[in-house]
Design a protein around this nucleic acid. Structure first.
Lengths: 190, 190
DNA sequence: CAGATCATGTAACCTGTTACATGATTTC
DNA sequence: GAAATCATGTAACAGGTTACATGATCTG
């Protein structure tokens, strides 16, 4: 379970609540991993029972009490073990490519619409990564002084950017290919 | 549900059994979508109940009877509706990048081992796509005469190849970056 | 005065994987 | 004689999403 290990990783920087962990996901690694609070809370509970975490309650009025989680020695060991363990490369799972695969059933304009929509999505994402994520890394370094860590954060961002760029190039080239076909060519090559 | 629509897409080429559908997945779109038989069989049943498919039983001795599925008009309409519907771009979900993100906890050799392993995985896949998938497309065109469709099949393969190439480039550049660091630099920039 | 932020969860549901069950025929 | 191919499934489990539940305080 990767969520478990991502949580260990963040808690290893500093003790936090589930709510704060969610913010870390949203601000730093959301572009390659994320989770909802409804998944994070029960997972933290299980990890506590497994002895990977300790919990301290900070009492609050007019808000639910803060449950601050700390990594135990067992948790740190488990994190390190997992980090060294060879990772597999999960298969792509892209419904959009199913639409392209069976795209022969669509008209030229319909498939161009699909492609342009996909292009726009990836362009937006790329822009977001270049703005927000870069900034988030900068802010994290300033806030935590984890300068060494930021080298690794930057590596993952590079891959995120490269991924979006691949899509953008493919979409643009594919749109160009299909636009270059006359309607006659497009309809009559079956 | 994309599995449903992928099944509709294949059955729209020709009526088939669940077993044969699985082979189509394994031979043509496995690199961006796949499913196990244990998921395909119940899904076909549900689709039949929804009126998207019709089933004919071919009786056999010494083997379970073949259940051959055909797309109904409602199924064809549903396929066409889905193909036109704008597709979203699902977020990446790569546990390996979590390992890199928290890579500061690893030694230089440990992280290089991760990177080289990942590089090898993607190189193998790229080689497979360039061999097997190209061949599968060629064979499908010969077997079915769906020349027009093969243009679209090729487009998805291009994206698959591009994806693997991105990983390979990133892995190689990242390995080079880290190798270029002296051990001293690597350990002492926190 | 509406919406974001802080802060916790539970329950139902959906998708997909793994394990189990059966068994003849063909190929190496 | 072992492994792949043909051909069907069921059941348990794992991971993740959506909906529901609660409610004060801060910000625009």
């Amino acid at each position: 379970m990767s969520l478990k290990h991502a949580l260990l990783g963040f808690l290893n920087y500093a003790p936090m609540t589930g709510y704060e962990l969610k913010q870390h996901f949203d601000r730093s690694i959301y572009y390659f991993w994320n989770a909802k609070l409804s998944q994070i809370y029960p997972t933290l509970n299980r990890m506590k029972e497994e002895g990977l975490l300790m919990m301290e309650v900070e009492y609050q009025e007019s808000k639910p009490n803060r449950k601050v989680y700390h990594v135990t020695d067992a948790g740190r060991e488990e994190l390190h073990r997992w980090l060294r363990e060879p990772a597999d490369a999960p298969p792509l799972r892209i419904a959009f490519l199913i639409k392209i695969f069976f795209g022969g059933k669509l008209t030229k304009e319909e498939i161009l619409a699909q492609l342009r929509h996909q292009l726009a999505l990836h362009q937006e994402r790329l822009a977001a990564y270049q703005r927000e994520v870069r900034d988030a890394i900068r802010q994290n370094v300033e806030a935590t002084g984890l300068k060494r860590e930021s080298f690794f954060w930057g590596l993952t961002l590079d891959m995120g950017i490269r991924y979006e760029e691949s899509w953008i190039e493919w979409c643009q080239e594919t749109v160009a290919k299909i636009e270059a076909m006359t309607n006659n060519m497009y309809e009559n090559n079956s």
